[in-house]
Design a protein around this nucleic acid. Structure first.
Length: 545
RNA sequence: GCGCCUGUGGCUCAACGGAUAGAGCACUAGCCUCCGAAGCUGGUGGUGCAGGUUCAAUUCCUGCCAGGCGCACCA
């Protein structure tokens, strides 16, 4: 795979520095950025500003010397034909301006190779397990789960696009205390339905769906002892359908019950014991997580002989590595942030780097209606569900809205705004750009691309559009580094805006064969990038709306 | 008390430590005999407070103020 122009330019700057015997002084890595503003060229470097202190000279003076060296290197290099000019600007930035030919070539690549032109082999096939949602099968999914589902699924798609080998997994908490309580909740409701007077404890599941399950269990004559499993199965079917309707498909549903049956938990205990990471105190069995930086040691078997949740969790994460994954990503709610250290401690106990597990805390979303927050109470079974959001605003708007903010930030989600089919609603803005392009392309019959000459695209808006398309790869790079897909939504809005501006000022059709063909190619390129981005978000790409 | 997240125009949010802090909504003034006006153009308006590091701080560090969420032999 050939190096991209950015890498080649960096190499060139490094050569120039070496020639000026400045390379040793540049302690930091040479950085070549996309400028913050189109006025500052296509690439920029702040190396002269960085060198200012060590050289005890002003950034502009240093830049003036550097630029001579750089220009000499350019003349010797193959980049000569691609670089239009290099300038010192501002406080001492060295800005590179590329020839339009470079952009025409890149656009041509997008049109001929379609999506493949946007791919980057950053993953090199590395095996990633991304675990998300993992809600207990005790009720419908909430908006908190919905946001996790959107973020996790989209991040997984992006990683796949960057050539990681990705598995989406849902950890199913299908045994233990919560399932017992679920079973007892159903049992009581069933007794209530048969006319018995009951007292319903506050910590039992209060939702109306418990009555539905009780009715069903009554019909099927399920024994009291089996009610927990029966209810969990019943609810799991609902959860799977909700996720399916949200466009989220898991490769693996990992059952905690099966994990326990497999003997892997006991095996993990033995290994920890051999490594001397367990000890007994106050009648309980503890894991020495403090060895690996946790605040305190953690109980894994309580003094009454039962396990804490941590026991299967340690075995589960160990099993992830045993299944051959190189990188684990967990999406957790903010109430779990205290568990990061203990799980990281456990993987270190087995010799894995703490960095091989990335835990992403997905902050909560607050649902608004007409500017008013909707109060939730899980205990009373009153919370906004994924199902309700889907019914109200549909999958496209829901996914886009859940992805619009940085994952670590709280998110306000106004149902009324998401429902609006107007400019207030960013998902329509992006989809509208796509539909507009399709509409133009529909009115054209077969197009002959054999003598396509993109160099007639000389307008500022046309070049801006190409440059914006090329930014897509950079954005995906940032998503990988930050483990956060939200930048894609921001980018797609910007690309759409750039397109709408072009559209408003320039006509595609009826501009003479050469220009019309070139502009058709241009908007086809935009369509490819928009479509690819929306696909990664899991949002549809309507041809008309 | 400790930990995590967050403080940017009236509202919701952007800005690898960079150049004149950008968008949308709201408010306001304009643009369709012309490929989709779900669009485009202009105007009003902003970094919680106090220090520090830096050539350069919305960004990093310290303290304070404010909001959210956690701190179990619960999951």
């Amino acid at each position: 795979m050939q190096k991209n122009i950015q890498e080649e330019l960096i190499a060139l700057v490094v050569r120039a520095l070496r020639k000026g015997e400045l390379d040793k002084l540049a302690q930091e890595e040479i950085i070549l950025d996309l400028p913050t503003d189109e006025r500052f060229g296509d690439f920029t470097t702040n190396i002269a500003l960085k060198l200012s202190k060590t050289l005890k000279n002003s950034p502009r003076n240093i830049a003036a010397v550097l630029i001579e060296l750089i220009q000499e290197e350019i003349l010797k290099s193959e980049l000569k034909s691609l670089i239009a000019q290099v300038k010192v600007e501002g406080a001492g930035f060295i800005n590179f301006y590329l020839n339009a030919d470079y952009f025409y070539n890149q656009l041509s690549k997008i049109i001929t190779q379609s999506e493949d032109a946007l791919r980057q082999d950053l993953g090199k096939g590395k095996k990633v397990l991304i675990e998300f949602v993992s809600a207990n099968p005790t009720g419908s999914l909430s908006v908190a789960h919905a946001r996790q589902a959107a973020v996790g699924d989209c991040l997984a798609s992006i990683l796949e696009f960057l050539n990681f080998s990705v598995q989406r997994e849902y950890y199913l908490n299908d045994e233990g205390n919560q399932i017992n309580i679920l079973g007892k909740s159903v049992q009581l409701r069933r007794e209530e339905l048969t006319g018995k007077e009951i007292e319903f404890p506050e910590n039992y599941y209060q939702g109306d769906y418990i009555f539905d399950i009780a009715t069903e269990a009554h019909k099927k004559k399920i024994s009291d002892a089996d009610l927990g499993d029966f209810a969990a199965d019943y609810i799991l079917k609902i959860i799977k359908q909700e996720l399916f309707d949200f466009g989220v498909n898991f490769d693996c549903w990992y059952s905690q019950k099966e994990l326990a049956k497999s003997g892997k938990v006991a095996q993990t205990f033995n290994q920890l014991k051999e490594k001397n990471y367990l000890f007994e105190q106050d009648g309980a069995l503890w894991f020495k997580s403090t060895v690996f930086g946790d605040d305190k040691d953690r109980v894994i078997i309580k003094s009454d002989g039962s396990q804490t949740y941590l026991a299967p969790d340690i075995a589960y994460h160990q099993d992830k590595f045993n299944r051959g994954f190189d990188w684990l990503i967990n999406l957790w709610g903010p109430d779990h942030h205290g568990y990061i250290n203990r799980i990281k401690a456990s993987i270190q106990a087995f010799g894995h780097s703490p960095d091989s597990l990335s835990v992403i805390i997905v902050q909560l979303a607050t649902i608004f209606r007409n500017g008013q927050p909707i109060q939730m109470s899980t205990r009373r079974g009153q919370y906004i569900t994924l199902r309700e959001v889907l019914n109200e605003v549909g999958s496209d708007a829901a996914r886009f809205f859940f992805l619009m903010r940085r994952t670590s930030s709280h998110l306000d989600f106004d149902l009324e705004v998401a429902k609006k089919q107007s400019s207030e609603n960013p998902v329509y803005y992006v989809q509208y750009a796509h539909a507009r392009i399709c509409s133009i392309l529909r009115s054209v019959t077969a197009q002959n691309n054999d003598d396509l000459d993109l160099s007639v695209l000389k307008e500022k808006e046309e070049l801006n559009l190409i440059k914006k398309m090329l930014e897509f790869k950079v954005i995906l790079n940032v998503c990988l580094i930050t483990c956060d897909p939200y930048m894609v939504t921001v980018y797609l809005q910007e690309l759409s805006e750039t397109f709408h501006k072009f559209y408003d000022l320039h006509r595609v059709l009826g501009q003479g064969e050469a220009l019309t063909n070139a502009r058709l190619a241009l908007i086809k390129g935009v369509k490819i990038v928009l479509s690819c981005g929306l696909e990664l978000l899991g949002v549809s790409q309507p041809e008309s709306m």
